[in-house]
Each structure stands twice: as structure tokens, then as C-alpha cells.
Design a protein around this nucleic acid. Structure first.
Lengths: 196, 196
DNA sequence: GTCTATACCCGGATAGAC
DNA sequence: GTCTATCCGGGTATAGAC
């Protein structure tokens, strides 16, 4: 996707933007903020990206592709609820900063909906329906919402705090990754929420 | 704070702002947007509120008080996890528009933290700790995150869509309220997520 | 690739007439 | 209580030199 010759600056911009967007939100972060941390002027930024929205789009490219891949798996074949939830744990880990940005800022949601064939609302609905399964009725849909939200928030909480207070001697796993024990715990909790 | 005699205009402003903030976000909504729907100019708005932040504060007054009430219940005595989750279902129903605004917009979070004795982060941590219970370790904390998120999202989903596809003949409950059956379903799901 | 300088617009907020 | 008019700041983005 990315052009053949990344100058390095482009990647630095993306890293800075990702961090600031996550912390202050997309609309709450200005081009000047990013340029400031980059150590250049705003004008220099526009050599690498043609707009602020462009930066966001670049940051969202990977996560969106991953999400689309999961959705496509729903079109062809019917993965189990466990497989689905498991896939969304991975997605949450890989795109932890982006995950918060996307559904926190309505402006971002709107931008995404402009560039995508299916609206984000439709995509979510499809996931919920797949999690609920056929003939599960309204109760099943509500449980699917519960399980989906549980997966996302618990995973974000786990990667945000890599500490392991219950085993002080054990080496904390590396930050930005999900401890396998945590992963199992989260998946089990979500599955219990999903199944009565 | 509020004058003795609400002209009615003040309430209209709040209603319009609540709807637009919920739909487009706080930063995504301009004073001009609100004034436009109100049918006046922006200057007229400033007769009723001294700033945009003031409008937000007025909208948050009730929900914040309710939240604080729940937290205070944690300081004195130890309510059961079920009672806690139940209280948060009610809170989510009563403040459904505000619930999304608050944790979606980092700007709003920052404003709240300025006016409150405890930061919202601390308040959330306290709730999570109370839900997890003593000596539950990291796994318990993760389950608490899962249950808390499940409660909020499932409740918002339920009130957002008052339809009842599984019983077409039953009269749909009034919008903005939570069907007792839905409520029971959500609470049970969250409790399952919480307890292994 | 990065700079200086600046155009341009939009949002919040105020002054003062009515 | 609402208006007209306006100020001010900040934000995106561009022009053109280096």
C-alpha cells in the first residue's frame, strides 16, 4: 500500500499522529500539534500528506482492512461465535489506538462512511447479527451487543495496563501485547455473556 | 445556578444541544448550529448561557449527580455487584445521550475533570475495583471491565431500538424506556461475564 | 524537504442598539 | 430577549523561496 520509498519522516508523522489522536481525539489534535512534536512547521507536513484527513486515512488503512477481512469471512461460511470474538480480540490489540479514535469521534465515523462501500453502522449490525446467530431474537441481539462491547473494552484495558499485580515475581509481558492468560479470561467472559 | 424563572427558551436550547451533541459530538457542534435550529442568532444564545461549556455543564448536571450518588454508595457500605450493575443500567437509560458524549470526546472528558474533585479516570477505577471485589486479582479486574462495558453498550442498544422483532403482536414499549425483559437479559449477561 | 509568510475561513464570544 | 455587527483566535491549507 505504502509507496516504495518511505522517507522515514512519513512514518514518524504517522506515529506521532496516532499517539496524539488517541490521546486528544482527531478534532482535538491540530496539524500544528503534530508538526510541533515532529520538530518542523505545518507546511513541511503537507509535503508528506495532502490533508489532515489523509493522515487519518493512512492510519486507518490497516485496521480497516483487517475488519473487512473478518466481515468477508461472514459472507462466505459461518464462523463460530468464538472464532469471531477471538478475531476481534486480535483486531483490538493490533489497532488499540485507532479503535478508540474511530468510535469516539462522530466526525471520524462520518469520514469513514464516506470512503467505504458499507457504512460502519451496517458493518456493526452484520457482526452483531452473526454473533447473535439465527433465530435468537431480541434477547440474543442484546447479548451480542454485550459480548462485543465486553471484548473490546476488556481487551483495551488489558493492553493499556500490562501490569500483573497478582503475580509480582512473574515477568510482565511486553507492553502492546496481550498476555495469553488475559486473552483466555476475556474470551471466556464474553462467551458467557453471549450464551445463556 | 439557573435563574428562578426558566423562560422555556433555556430548556429548548438544552434539548436541541443534547440532540446535536449526541449526534455530531460536542466539538462537532457549533453554537451557530444550535442557534440555527433554535431559530435565533448566536448572540441570543449568550443571553441564556455564558459559554458553550456552560451548556454542556447544564446537560451533565443530572447524570453527574446520579453517578456521584452511586460512587458514594461505594464509599459507605459495599453494595453487591448486581446492585451496582443495576444502578448503571438505570443511569445509562436516563442519560443515554450524555453517556455517549462523555466518553466519546476527550475534550469533554478534560472539561469534566477540571470541575470535579475526583477525575473521571479515578471514578471509573473505583467502580471497576468494586465490581471486581477484593482479592479477585487481574482476571477479576478484566471481567469487571467486560461486565461494565456490556452493561453500558447493551443498554444503549436496547433503548436506541425499542422494536421487538421476536413478538410482533406485543405492543412495543415506549421509546426512551427499557423493557423489563430486556433489562433482565442485560443484567444477567453482565453478571455471567463478571462471575466465572 | 523544509522554511517564511500568509490567505482564508470558521468558531466562540462581545458590544451596544432595539 | 433578540438583533446587527464585529472582534479575535485558531485551524487548515497554499505560495514560493531556499
Amino acid at each position: 500500500m505504502s509507496p516504495a520509498r518511505p522517507s522515514g519522516t512519513r512514518e514518524r508523522i504517522l506515529a506521532i499522529a496516532r499517539e496524539q489522536f488517541a490521546r486528544k481525539g482527531f478534532t482535538g489534535t491540530s496539524i500544528a500539534d503534530i508538526a510541533g512534536e515532529l520538530g518542523t512547521t505545518t507546511a513541511a507536513l503537507y509535503y508528506h500528506f495532502s490533508s489532515k484527513a489523509d493522515i487519518l486515512a493512512a492510519l486507518l488503512e490497516e485496521p480497516m482492512a483487517a475488519y473487512t477481512r473478518i466481515i468477508r469471512g461472514l459472507d462466505s461460511g459461518s464462523p463460530s461465535a468464538e472464532d469471531l470474538l477471538s478475531a476481534f480480540i486480535d483486531l483490538a490489540v493490533d489497532s488499540r489506538e485507532m479503535a478508540t479514535i474511530v468510535d469516539r469521534d462522530p466526525t471520524v465515523l462520518a469520514m469513514i462512511d464516506e470512503r467505504l462501500p458499507r457504512t460502519s453502522q451496517e458493518m456493526t449490525d452484520q457482526v452483531i447479527a452473526a454473533l447473535a446467530g439465527p433465530d435468537s431474537g431480541r434477547a440474543g441481539v442484546l447479548r451480542a451487543h454485550a459480548a462485543f462491547a465486553a471484548i473490546k473494552e476488556a481487551t483495551l484495558a488489558a493492553v493499556a495496563d500490562p501490569g500483573r499485580p497478582d503475580s509480582p515475581d512473574a515477568p510482565g509481558h511486553s507492553p502492546g501485547t496481550l498476555d495469553p492468560a488475559d486473552r483466555a479470561e476475556i474470551l471466556a467472559a464474553a462467551l458467557r455473556a453471549l450464551r445463556p
